[in-house]
Nucleic acid binder design. Structure first.
Lengths: 229, 229
DNA sequence: AAAAAAAAGTGACCTAAGTCACATTTTAAA
DNA sequence: TTTAAAATGTGACTTAGGTCACTTTTTTTT
């Protein structure tokens, strides 16, 4: 169980993780950040923000994972990204002056800090390194989504599942992949039943092993081969 | 036939079209731009840049259309975007310090200007409005790709074709959609044969009409309905 | 600890869409 | 203008993967 007040969370020890955006900050800048941020405890399946609402700030993940998804016509979730500790979520929407096109929701109980839009934009305005980092991040992400689209359009579901597992292995470093079959299916872009059948195939082929819902990767190389399918 | 030297192309009358990025420029800034840019004539199917190569600058489309695509495992093109007159192509790669993840190639003969990376980044550094425009553009595009991914994962090919035609109608304003069936299939994310069959269905349903390869939209509303499929 | 509600998993069936193999038409090149 | 080469279009066939209808297991709530 996480500490629900978690007053102990300071930016200094939080950033120690792997935030790509604030990593260039000097001590003084981290202190500034520490002053404007506010922390809170999120339980499992709690939204940070919802598609259609107006962005009010960014969220910095201290502990826990968050899924980012959009809903298709029939309301089916399409998971675009799973964010992990150290990531800043929702900063793309700070620049577009438009409502969120995605929803962010915790996958497990989490400690998450909030920085208001005004404070964040002020940081961006005054910090060249941060600004360049953001532009680079936006561009890289745009490039990643090209791959994502191409995969979705051209690969088999089996290939996409292999690719998704490789991504998730990275996101769940040091622990096992822990997603409902439905979430995994919505990430891969397939029906839950199809996903379950394919996971069984992977088990039979000794590529993965399951412990309850948790998935352990046994043969990373084989996943890479299959992901080319 | 376009003028191959097209010395008459000045930024002033070019920007009159619809460039979203340079539109805020004052006369003086446009003059600066005019000095650093160099123009050239591209014939049909000529690449502006190629996946894997290092970005050297941005391309500004004065006349003509350009497809942006990535290649899947078996080399099949996945068209991500069709750029039209007034658009600036390749600026995303200016910030990522990485090789292009996509190829850009003309769909028809074109007049295209080039601005070197150094000149472009200099503009971005010194012009706050341009910089904000770029950040906004990157964010908006990122949001659009979420829709793209969700469509690809959840819609039928018929629904995706309808969606593609709506987008292309906008891109080919004032003229008819003119793409090879293969390009259109690679945009929709399907096999060429399937695409041809679906186009025939649309013709039978009097949603579109073809003049040779060119496609005319007859019933825009019905396309919207179908694109929800 | 019991009850209720999610989630996981299976089997049977169906169909959208891919593949292959050509015929025909259009476009580009020699 | 002929030849070559793309691009378009059709038919026959196959199959990946979706849907539906359940059962079983795991979680959550009371």
């Amino acid at each position: 169980m996480l500490d629900k007040s978690h007053k102990h969370v300071t930016c200094e020890n939080c950033l120690a993780k792997n935030s790509s955006l604030f990593k260039s900050f000097c001590n003084e800048e981290v202190d500034d950040l520490n002053i404007v941020k506010s922390c809170s405890y999120f339980k499992k399946s709690q939204p940070l923000f919802i598609e259609g609402s107006m962005p009010r700030g960014v969220f910095c993940l201290n502990k826990g994972k968050v899924k980012i998804f959009s809903r298709g016509e029939e309301g089916k979730e399409q998971i675009i990204h799973v964010a992990k500790e150290g990531e800043i979520v929702g900063f793309r929407a700070m620049f577009s002056e438009e409502p969120y096109k995605v929803t962010a929701s915790t996958l497990e109980e989490s400690n998450i800090c909030f920085i208001s839009k005004a404070d964040f934009l002020n940081l961006v305005d005054t910090n060249v390194t941060l600004r360049n980092g953001i532009m680079k991040e936006l561009s890289t992400e745009l490039a990643n989504r090209v791959t994502y689209i191409t995969n979705m359009a051209q690969k088999s579901v089996r290939g996409r599942l292999a690719f998704a597992l490789i991504l998730l292995e990275e996101i769940y470093t040091g622990e096992m992949i822990n997603l409902t079959r439905e979430d995994l299916a919505n990430f891969v872009g397939t029906a839950t039943e199809t996903l379950i059948r394919l996971l069984k195939d992977f088990k039979d082929e000794e590529i993965i092993q399951t412990h309850g819902r948790k998935i352990e990767i046994l043969n990373h190389d084989k996943l890479i081969t299959i992901s080319g399918t």
